[in-house]
């Protein structure tokens, strides 16, 4: 198992869990409107399926909101 922080919440996931798998496990559906960064580095959508998460990674999952 690995332990990661997702939007500042600690989550335990299987070793070799990919970004795409994590999104599914956590219940994110409309992924076309999502952005993912690992340790403040942006991960393009086309890399979600093969990008594996590592222990202690900090993941941010963002989506559109209002802004000034």
């Amino acid at each position: 198992m690995i332990q990661v922080s997702i939007n500042n919440q600690l989550e335990a996931l299987d070793t070799h869990c990919t970004v795409l798998k994590a999104l599914e496990i956590l219940g994110y559906q409309k992924t076309n409107m999502l952005g993912v960064a690992i340790n403040q580095t942006y991960i393009p959508k086309d890399q979600w399926a093969e990008t594996e998460l590592n222990d202690q990674d900090k993941i941010d999952i963002l989506n559109p909101v209002s802004g000034g």
Partner: peptide
């Protein structure tokens, strides 16, 4: 102008 923020799965506000 608009922005991006963290969103939990159950919060549908973004959509």
């Amino acid at each position: 102008t608009l922005s991006l923020r963290r969103q939990s799965p159950e919060n549908k506000g973004g959509e």
